[in-house]
Design a protein around this nucleic acid. Structure first.
Lengths: 291, 291
DNA sequence: GCGAACAATCGGTTTCGCTTATCGTAGTGA
DNA sequence: TCACTACGATAAGCGAAACCGATTGTTCGC
């Protein structure tokens, strides 16, 4: 049995006329005769009575008809379902990003994306570069935004954002409160707030101080971004943070470091060789073109 | 889209392995690759991620899978449904017969038939020859048992039963009650019970009397078989009836007519050129071989 | 880094499905 | 009743589809 058999069968069953059925299906009449004959032979039963020039369903034909209709309807539904995905009326994709990007940049961007493509559903995963990369490599994540200093060679990437690290200080700080820039070496006596072991930010801070020739004094070690910023606001210390993290922080002043270029490159990455779903492709293009 | 596409798709989706899917479907592996590729091209979406040597469903593939399963399951159900009919596990057919046959012969026969073919459903239509023939000619009846003296030439028939007409009399009848035979001419003064206008039986009775040279006296005109027999039993008259009608009539005696051969041929008929359903064919064979 | 596993690709052959042309037959109307 | 018409069946031919065996190109595991 065959979908062509069934479409021919339903058309004939509905018109009770081989020639008109052929017209409806835009084929010549013999094609219909052949399809019906083949189907009847395969099933071992006559489906139509050709009695004189009147065509009518046999008992077996009547039994088959509802099945045939349902099969064809389901086929159509399946095609619609899948085609909608290729036409981006529906679809799912996933994106990973580090906390600062995820909390300060993506909400607005994804809102914008959702307005463009209301049917596409984006699930966001917030994690560090290492975690995100392995998720992408396992195929559990379509796209991720990660630091691009070391890239595995089974992912491809496109530059996404250059993130500057700045010094977060309290506006009331006697020495730094009003300055725009500062040399890192001048901070040798400032108490620092350090991020937990394993975070990129901690390494960056320690390395920068090291290059400037001092070991930072530590005011708080191991808090999350939110509590670190609270400490800074309260004047208990300073912290090197991504500029993005200060976007909504009102009682904090940011000071650039003049003697070192402290930045990190963030890239949008995906698994090399994997054909991204239409939804994922769309999200990737959206993110690269709307940086 | 195509059932072969879908079977290949489901097989791959279930094994996540093109080669094993090919084995299951008893085709070579390239056939599977080709079917999947064709389906993906037609739908415009990748259905599987081939990442390294691992195969996994894409979002679109996951969406398609339940539809594909349902389509294939329905196809199988349809095939079973129809095949059962050709294997006579199920089926419907229709049979028409005149009242005497229908009430005295068929109940036993159809019970026997039902034991042989429990899945076959026979609907019985009781009517006169004329009605039955036109039902057969219209394709509304598969088979009918009718008087075969005049046959339209678009039906075929096979002899079914020779029905003798006998004289039904009351056992208490002073003249006829104990006789086995009688000449029709001797009945000139007997009151007759006549069947309604249009019934074959009325014509037969009138013609027979006419041939015997008299006009029958009429005791009751136009009653059904049951009431006619009641009248006969009560000694109010005699009636020419098919022998079959007397099978269960206890207080009635039957007398043969010696000077005329009053019989009718009943044949089993069906529409010429119409391919009977398996069920109808089976019933026809049963009825002709178990007369 | 070598071998096994596995999907993709290629060239060739069979099968399928369509087309046009034609036939046979059953209604239909003068 | 006889031609005409409508309609399904059949035949022959052709292009496309589907399958196969052989081969290639990767990738994983040892």
């Amino acid at each position: 049995m065959n979908l062509r058999h069934l479409t021919a069968f339903v058309a004939v069953a509905e018109t009770l006329n081989f020639s008109r059925a052929a017209d409806e299906l835009h084929v010549a009449q013999p094609a219909i005769s052949q399809q019906i004959r083949a189907l009847e032979q395969e099933l071992g039963v006559m489906l139509f009575d050709r009695i004189g020039k009147k065509v009518s369903l046999t008992d077996a034909g009547r039994a088959l008809l509802p099945y045939a209709r349902q099969i064809l309807a389901t086929v159509e539904a399946a095609e619609n379902e899948v085609r909608e995905r290729s036409e981006l009326k529906r679809g799912k994709t996933s994106l990973g990003a580090p906390p600062t990007v995820s909390t300060h940049l993506l909400p607005a961007k994804l809102m914008q994306f959702k307005q463009l493509w209301p049917g596409l559903e984006v699930t966001l995963r917030e994690a560090g570069t290492g975690t995100l990369l392995s998720l992408v490599e396992d195929g559990k994540l379509d796209l991720a935004i990660v630091a691009t200093d070391v890239m595995p060679d089974n992912v491809e990437s496109t530059p996404f954002l250059q993130e500057d690290y700045v010094l977060a200080v309290s506006p009331q700080h006697p020495f730094l409160g009003k300055r725009q820039t500062v040399k890192l070496a001048d901070l040798a006596n400032e108490p620092f707030i350090l991020f937990p072991e394993g975070y990129k930010l901690r390494e960056v801070t320690l390395q920068a101080c090291h290059r400037a020739g001092f070991e930072p004094k530590v005011a708080l070690d191991g808090g999350a971004m939110a509590s670190a910023l609270e400490f800074v606001g309260a004047g208990l210390g300073v912290a090197l943070v991504p500029e993005l993290a200060l976007i909504d922080a009102h009682n904090i002043h940011s000071v650039r470091i003049s003697d070192q270029s402290l930045t990190r490159e963030l890239g949008l990455v995906w698994l090399k060789g994997r054909s991204l779903s239409p939804a994922a492709r769309t999200l990737r293009e959206f993110l690269t073109n709307n940086r």
